[in-house]
Simulated assay, not measured.
Amino acid sequence: MSTPDTGAIATKINALIEEKWRHQPKPPGNAAIARAIREETGLSISTGYLWMLRTGERKNPTGPRLQALAKFFGKPAGYFLDQDITSEDMDLATALRSSGVRTIALRSDGLSERSQRAILDMIEHAREIERLDHDDDV
């Protein structure tokens, strides 16, 4: 695992905050976010500590604070510590926890690119039918 740099944790937390509140004009302040973390996870993180993480003053969240962030944002704790892990990597890891997604991925291995494209087209069509990618529904 890579050693985190000062900005990596701050960048990840700020990106997660932006994503979580993407449908609002701007995210809430640190006090509201810290309160939401406490309320949703039952784990404590102070407003000041969250501010220090977001500004890069603190760069290594540990113990309960790391658990609180991970639980709140739906990421494994390692996401915050490994600067080589991207959000896309973590989204893939989260998706692969679903046995259905895992089965689709494993069964498509070895198929021609044409067949894989056809499967992807079917998945995109199903997502469209279920309106999973429409932001205007929120």
Rank of each mutant, 00 (worst) to 15 (best):
G7W: 10
T41V: 11
E40T: 11
R127L: 15
M52C: 06
I45L: 15
A36T: 06
P64H: 05
H134T: 04
L43Y: 10
R97G: 14
I33T: 05
A70S: 14
P4F: 08
S112F: 03
I85G: 00
L43M: 14
S115W: 01
K71E: 13
R131W: 01
I37M: 14
H125I: 07
R102P: 00
I119N: 03
I9R: 01
A70R: 06
K59F: 01
I119L: 15
A68N: 04
Q67W: 00
D84M: 03
E39I: 10
M52S: 11
S112K: 01
I85K: 11
M122P: 00
W21T: 08
D89S: 05
P25N: 15
E18S: 14
N14G: 04
S108Y: 02
I9Y: 06
A105F: 11
S98F: 04
D135V: 00
E39G: 03
L50N: 08
L66H: 02
L50M: 09
S99V: 06
I123D: 06
S99Y: 04
E40F: 06
L120E: 11
N14F: 05
E88N: 12
G74S: 09
K71L: 14
L92T: 12
T47D: 13
Y49S: 07
I85C: 03
A118I: 11
F72G: 04
S2V: 14
L96V: 03
A10W: 06
A10G: 02
S99W: 03
P25Q: 14
R107V: 08
E113S: 10
E40C: 10
N30Y: 14
D89Q: 06
A31L: 09
R114G: 12
L69H: 03
N30M: 09
G7K: 12
P27R: 10
M90C: 14
D5K: 11
G78T: 14
S98R: 07
A8T: 15
T86Y: 08
I33P: 01
A105Q: 02
L53D: 01
H134Y: 06
D82R: 07
R35H: 11
S44N: 13
T41M: 11
A118P: 00
L16G: 03
G74N: 12
K20Y: 12
A105W: 04
P28I: 10
I119A: 08
L16F: 08
E18Q: 15
S44T: 14
G110Q: 05
R58E: 02
S87D: 12
S99P: 01
L81T: 08
S46Y: 04
R97W: 02
G48T: 12
A32V: 11
I45N: 07
T11M: 07
G63T: 03
P64C: 01
D89W: 06
L50E: 09
L81K: 08
A8H: 09
G78Q: 13
R65Q: 09
A15W: 00
L132D: 07
K26W: 07
T62K: 12
D133T: 10
D136I: 01
D137G: 00
Q67E: 13
R65K: 11
Y79K: 10
I85S: 09
F73I: 08
M1F: 11
D136E: 11
